[in-house]
């Protein structure tokens, strides 16, 4: 039987339906798992994404991008392929894409996490013959902090800083991570300020009905010192730039990422604190997700592919590596 999906220079390709999944080069028809820039790129003639992923993708790609939408679980015939989108739990609207051709079912996971973040549609295992899995954190050293402990860690850090008259500057990616932090922290502690890139995403998500706590965007007109002890959500890039200097020397800095599980990474970031929070699956999450698909064939992409493939092969899977040269978000 011919492969349902193949791996090309332009991305994951389905010959039966003549479309690509998360292509890296301009193509006619792109099925896009979610709005992160290593998945939703500009230059495609037509896009297909979930209804809840579309607003962010449109915001990022501009008004001229032609984006069709599909509901989670809805099937659609494209050429000889039947496709459907299923929650990946990564960011709001993020999907795994199921492609079925003549009874053979393949699933491309995109980015995913198995724990419910209370914001994204929770991950659902999709039975399939072949599963294309990311493995950004595909080593047994990555085991995420339980949600309640994480919330306590961040709230304690913020409250302590506030009591000492310091700002708390927390670095996080604009889409997904930032909003997850917003719904994790206790907004009663104090005001929450946001960097423009994060606030722009907040607005898009609020418009599609997602509830986020009140935030104050940091604009040139805003005097940040009117909000003493505030929590400031910043993109990693902004923290390093002059933007970060406006809060003065009396700040505590922290970064939220799966990489913060590693002491060496925490020290390299040179932040005061590192919180272990990721929108990708941890070791247990990856293993559980793969097992629950029932797939016998697994393709590892994005991450520790060498180690993870070998591990899967030893677990009895027909495991292969998909080479990509794109840096993944984490």
């Amino acid at each position: 039987m011919a492969d349902v999906l193949t791996f090309t220079k332009r991305g994951i390709y389905c010959a039966a339906g003549d479309f690509y999944i998360d292509p890296s080069k301009p193509v006619e028809r792109a099925l896009v798992t979610h709005g992160h820039s290593d998945h939703a790129r500009s230059g495609m003639t037509r896009y297909l994404a979930t209804r809840s992923a579309k607003p962010v993708i449109q915001h990022r790609l501009g008004p001229n991008a032609v984006i069709d939408t599909i509901a989670f679980g809805e099937t659609r015939q494209i050429g000889d392929a039947t496709v459907s989108f299923h929650p990946a739990g990564h960011v709001p609207g993020s999907a795994q894409i199921r492609v079925s051709v003549k009874g053979e079912v393949w699933v491309a996971s995109g980015d995913y996490k198995t724990v419910d973040d209370g914001l994204s549609e929770p991950f659902e295992p999709v039975p399939c013959h072949a599963f294309i899995t990311e493995c950004t954190f595909g080593l047994p050293i990555f085991n995420w902090t339980p949600k309640d402990i994480l919330a306590r860690q961040i709230n304690d850090w913020w409250a302590t800083n506030k009591a000492a008259g310091r700002f708390s500057v927390l670095g996080a990616y604009a889409l997904g991570k930032a909003q997850r932090l917003l719904t994790t922290v206790n907004p009663d502690i104090g005001p929450i300020l946001t960097h423009g890139a994060i606030e722009a995403t907040n607005i898009v998500l609020r418009n599609q009905g997602i509830t986020l706590p009140q935030t104050i965007p940091v604009t040139p007109e805003l005097n940040v010192h009117d909000h003493p002890g505030a929590l400031i959500l910043a993109t990693p890039g902004a923290m390093a730039q002059p933007w970060g200097a406006q809060f003065g020397p009396d700040v505590s800095t922290a970064f939220a990422s799966g990489w913060m599980a590693l002491r060496g990474q925490r020290r390299r970031r040179a932040m005061d604190r590192g919180f272990v929070v990721s929108d990708h699956a941890d070791w247990a999450g990856l293993n559980t997700a793969i097992r629950e698909t029932g797939a016998t064939k697994v393709f590892a992409t994005h991450g520790y592919t060498g180690s993870f493939r070998r591990w899967l092969a030893e677990q009895g899977y027909d495991a292969q590596i998909v080479a990509t040269d794109d840096p993944a978000d984490a």
């Binding site: 080593l139 047994p140 050293i141 590693l262 002491r263 060496g264 520790y304 060498g306 180690s307 070998r310 591990w311």
Partner: peptide, 10 residues
């Protein structure tokens, strides 16, 4: 070997 791979990262 998987522990070794992990140790190299950590």
């Amino acid at each position: 070997w998987l522990f070794e791979d992990s140790y190299r990262v950590v």
